[in-house]
Design a protein around this nucleic acid. Structure first.
Lengths: 214, 214
DNA sequence: TCATGTGAAGCAGTTCACAGCG
DNA sequence: CGCTGTGAACTGCTTCACATGA
């Protein structure tokens, strides 16, 4: 038994699975279960049980041989590991259709994240609230982000504006961006970027439909 | 010179890059360029030039040694390859905030995709149009999909409803799903699934913010 | 006995480095 | 000469298989 190494590097793939495991564990907990084996978990996600054990073993020995994992402490561990016991503030840049919808969606779905501000260039929107979120001019980006202490940004602006927005966000100290604009934004310095390119996803679907059935 | 192999298997990663290359080529074409080298492309995307050459070489020899790639024919080739010269019909299941926003977004952004129907359980919405898209009861899913010939579905329903929706879609003959519900839907038979899990993305960001700076 | 934790093997995708050709 | 096309090396993730321990 070793006290959790915790560090080195956890891959994105592993991280995303942990997020999914956590939700599953929370559900099991609500349903009154107390332990679960890697095999049982694997079945739910159509993964291999070894995958799950490897994922979990990175952070210390959490399982009980012959039995499985205790759900409650494991869930708590993952919750902490993902940094979810601390509420994260985020801003939405581009309060159009999609930005506004995401503001509501995040607010409604996720207790660990708080949408503290939206930005837009449309004078009609500036100074009002949309879905409970105050909308500021994009000029105010740096000031508002520093005042609110936001750490994450969701980018829902047109492709042409995305790069300059990213620069402004980097300047304001934002360290994580979810980019919905259809451009591949690069990581820059300490800023992490997750590109969520709807267009690419649709085109992937289109390709698969054209291809012969597997 | 070999006539394009075209087949075997193209990985998702490659496919997604092709989608991005295509948009870049179209932009270059509008700007009046006629050829581009793998190095110049690589610079734009912060990729290696070898990566780009490998990606493109899968479909035949398209480059001119000592020069680079001719933009127009390459763009046309990729466009065809991704199946974009054929208009794809899609439906949105769950016409809430997010579903409605996506309907507008796709319609506005992408000439190759047509949103032909939305589905929801809310009687208030059924029978009306939202963002130009007629909304039907979820009961009608199979009938409407077969009548419209939709091939792609965007899932924006609550997590609890996602699995049964997937089954209904599979039954209706839909072969590609973009799932925005926060559950990991499995591929089933010939149905391809792309999970776009906002919650996981946010939690990934949260983890990275907690972790020491790289 | 049964399920975990883990080295070793396997596989996939990326990068390297250079031969080949315009 | 410059840039493509490509085998070979490399990197990192996944799966296997088994020793270990409750």
């Amino acid at each position: 038994m070793v006290s959790a190494p915790e560090s080195s590097s956890t891959s994105t793939a592993t991280l995303n699975r942990l997020s999914v495991y956590l939700r599953c564990l929370q559900e099991l907990l609500r349903a009154g279960a107390s332990t679960i084996s890697s095999h049982a978990l694997a079945e739910r996600f159509h993964l291999s049980s070894a995958q799950i054990r490897k994922d979990l073993a990175q952070f210390g020995e959490f399982g009980i041989r012959g039995v499985g994992y205790e759900i409650a402490p494991l869930a708590e561990r993952l919750h902490h590991l993902l940094g979810l016991d601390r509420k994260r503030r985020l801003v939405i840049v581009g309060m159009g259709q999609l930005g506004t919808a995401l503001a509501g969606y995040i607010h409604f779905n996720d207790a660990s994240f708080e949408v503290v501000a939206g930005f837009d260039n449309d004078p009609e929107k500036i100074g009002r609230k949309r879905r409970g979120v105050p909308v500021y001019s994009t000029d105010q980006l740096e000031r508002v982000i520093q005042e609110t202490g936001a750490e994450i940004a969701v980018l829902t602006v047109p492709a042409t504006a995305a790069i300059e927005c990213q620069e402004a966000l980097a300047g304001a100290g934002v360290r994580a961006v979810l980019n919905f604009a259809p451009v591949l934004l690069p990581e820059r310095g300490s800023m992490r970027v997750k590109n969520v390119d709807l267009r690419t996803y649709l085109e992937e679907a289109s390709f698969l439909l054209s291809a012969p059935l597997p």
